[in-house]
Design a protein around this nucleic acid. Structure first.
Length: 707
DNA sequence: GAGCACTGC
């Protein structure tokens, strides 16, 4: 199984831990449901049999060109083109199913509004960029392939040619392109799609395209047209930012959803989920499927287990149940099973994280159960700590979840929170830019000669987050002072790598230590998800078979040892990964990242040197980017970080767990029940003075020799 | 001796 989590044996989950009663008591819902803004969920007029062409299996299949004419956007084509022609910046609010993402670029191209340039359309996710490009190429017909008129560019994959007029790309990809050409001269039309999602990349691009447009106009270059496409939210906010530009509204193709709130609050939402599911199960026809939103893998497996158990209870009425789970860390084969249609007489229930909110669309969903919570990462600039926390969703998210029941026909949504709890929720999700570590963003903006403190953000990030980012960049030597608007030569080099600036610094220091070969591997492994599988019931086995890779120097060298053997395996890669409990998907991704990084290194004129077995060199090199991540052992056997003097512990997943080296370099801190350090290497205190003398002048060490 | 939502370059 090629996943970090082996789910075999999960039926042994200790359900009492999650306090789910075997026969949950019913949850009471209020019948009054009218949402305050029913605008978002509505039925289009004269569309009673629209599912006949939405459904690929339908025998009344109609031609691909005919389908295009039935999209809601089609009737607005001329009006839209007129607006796009007359406005340099335009906001297009389009509901789900309006056809805006696939059709508008084609309309623009047919009318040749892009002149000699290209139309670029960004998407927050790779799969979306790729699959939409394929669909649009298919709509072009005439034997056109992806990469002809319509193409896409995502990391590791560029399917475009000189003939490409319409280019779909991830927002991160367009941002990288902007690093090398801030005026984005390749494009005459840029469409930022899914703008309401407010990814950190899209937020930075807002400012970049706005500036590019202005500068190109001033310099009399080819004009740049900007289209912002978004779901129907925050229009005034967007419009104001883009100099009060015009906005248009496109209706979509969604159906009404009945919404129920609970009568009283339910803290134990897991039990409430199970109870609500069986209420639906008793009442609804078998072929109507249910989607349950929960926060994480563990609780998803627990609830799924409970539903399976109760479903087998002869006293429980209703058809047989097929329970599917869905979360990102799952093996892809297991994820795919969610899409298999169930037999007529069986009910499918999908228990999912918020991956089903936007990233994955499942057809046939008639009922939603929304627990009202989400697991989200929060960042504290003052401590540099990242914390995964279960918190309330925003009203926007609640609507997004609700809408998942109205894609093909009318649906029903049970919200496991009261009406007034809903009213208390934040209206919108806080944009990522306001809750993320900004070191990369600050570096990227400096590459464009912009200081992040003066950048035209639509929503400004907190000032202490910007300050923390600049302090880090100064420590790394990317800038000379925190007020600087220019990068040092080292900083210029760092921008070239698609990495956290600390990791870029490590790569760029490698020639001093003669270990670029090794450090390329380590950095690649650090920038993908964990390659180590630790199935809950086979932890011991996994550890003992991987024992031969363990290094007393810590996790970085251990990972390097694993990768070295992996790259010598040759044919039987799958077998080797399985035998050693290695996540094949993730190690292959690391290999791909490594190729990309090596390529950038070569193009920058670096030589790929190897230090052989001198692991001191590797650890010293790691220290050049992570010297602010060192913890010291104190007399009471506690570790304290040199940087912020925080009390921390070694994470039990580390090979150094159970040992007490005096100084450890860590890659990250995660706060759960305690502050844990993950991915560690032992280091010498002497190295700290050698590698980071300036830093050590302000961060003294105790150097206690405890016994 | 603990546990990891989701993206992206």
């Amino acid at each position: 199984m090629d996943s970090k989590y082996n789910l075999i044996g999960n039926n042994k989950l200790n359900i009492t831990k999650f306090k789910i009663k075997p026969k949950p008591t019913p949850v009471l819902f209020s019948k009054k449901n009218g949402p305050p803004s029913p605008k978002k969920i509505k039925l289009n007029e004269n569309e009673s049999n629209k599912s006949s062409y939405m459904n690929g299996n339908n025998k009344f299949k109609i031609s691909i060109q005919e389908q295009r004419t039935k999209l809601p956007v089609y009737d607005k084509k001329n009006k839209l083109l007129d607006l796009i022609r007359r406005n340099n910046t335009l906001i297009i609010m389009g509901e789900t199913g309006s056809g805006k993402t696939t059709q508008i670029p084609q309309y623009i191209n047919a009318a040749k509004l892009q002149n000699e340039g290209r139309i670029g359309i960004t998407q927050p996710r790779r799969v979306a960029a790729v699959s939409i490009a394929m669909r649009v190429a298919q709509e072009y017909g005439n034997g056109q392939q992806v990469g002809d008129t319509v193409g896409y560019t995502v990391r590791f994959e560029d399917v475009t040619s000189k003939r490409t007029k319409i280019k779909y790309l991830t927002d991160g990809m367009l941002l990288r392109e902007a690093m090398f050409d801030s005026l984005l001269m390749e494009y005459t039309v840029i469409i930022l799609d899914e703008a309401h999602e407010r990814t950190i990349h899209t937020d930075v691009l807002f400012g970049i395209v706005k500036t590019a447009q202005k500068v190109r106009e001033a310099k009399n270059f080819a004009p740049l047209k900007i289209l912002i496409m978004s779901a129907t939210m925050d229009v005034d906010h967007f419009s104001k930012y883009f100099n009060d530009c015009q906005a248009v509204y496109l209706e979509g193709r969604t159906y009404p959803v009945n919404i129920f709130h609970t009568v009283r609050p339910h803290d134990d939402y897991q039990t409430a989920c199970v109870a609500t599911f069986f209420k639906i199960h008793r009442e609804a026809p078998a072929n109507q499927d249910v989607l349950i939103f929960l926060t994480g893998q563990e609780e998803i497996e627990a609830v799924a287990h409970q539903i399976r158990l109760l479903g087998k209870d002869p006293e429980v009425e209703g058809p047989p149940i097929r329970v599917c789970t869905l979360y990102a860390a799952q093996p892809s084969t297991q994820q795919m099973s969610v899409f298999n249609p169930s037999p007529e007489n069986m009910r499918k229930v999908i228990v999912s994280t918020n991956i089903a909110e936007t990233s994955v669309t499942i057809t046939g969903i008639k009922y939603i159960i929304d627990c009202g919570m989400v697991k989200a990462r929060t960042y504290h600039p003052a401590t540099g700590l990242e914390l995964l926390k279960v918190q309330r969703i925003s009203q926007e998210q609640a609507w997004q979840r609700t809408g998942r029941a109205g894609r093909e026909s009318e649906g029903t949504c049970y919200r496991l929170y009261t009406r007034s709890q809903f009213e208390m929720m934040q209206k919108s999700t806080i944009p990522e830019i306001q809750r993320a570590n900004l070191t990369s963003v600050a570096l990227q903006l400096l590459a464009l000669d912009i200081h992040a403190l003066f950048f035209d953000f639509m929503d400004k990030p907190p000032e202490d987050a910007i300050t923390a980012a600049f302090e880090q960049l100064k420590l790394l030597g990317a800038i000379d002072s925190v007020e600087s608007t220019a990068l040092t030569p080292l900083g210029e080099q760092m921008v070239k790598f698609p990495l956290d600036p600390r990791f870029s610094k490590i790569l760029l220091s490698a020639h001093n230590f003669g270990c670029l070969e090794e450090v390329l591997t380590v950095v690649s492994l650090l920038s993908v998800e964990s390659i180590l599988l630790s199935p809950p019931n086979k932890k011991e086995q996994a550890n003992s078979v991987r024992q031969k890779f363990f290094s007393a120097f810590g996790d970085h060298v251990t990972l390097l040892n694993i990768y070295r053997e992996f790259s010598n395996v040759g044919q039987n890669m799958r077998g080797w990964c399985h035998e050693h409990y290695i996540n094949m998907r993730n190690i292959l991704q690391a290999r791909e990242v490594r190729c990309q990084l090596e390529d950038i290194c070569r193009k920058s004129g670096m030589t790929i040197s190897s230090c052989g077995s001198q692991m001191d060199q590797v650890r010293k090199c790691l220290l050049t980017g992570l010297f602010m991540n060192v913890a010291e052992l104190h007399r009471d056997r506690q570790y304290i970080t040199l940087d912020k003097r925080q009390v921390v512990s070694i994470h039990p997943s580390s090979v150094l767990h159970g040992q007490q080296p005096h100084f450890i370099l860590f890659t990250e801190v995660v706060q759960t029940t305690k502050c844990y350090l993950r991915l560690l290497s032992t280091v010498d205190s002497d190295w700290l003075y050698e590698i980071a003398p300036d830093y050590m002048r302000t961060h003294s060490i105790k150097c206690t020799k405890d016994s």
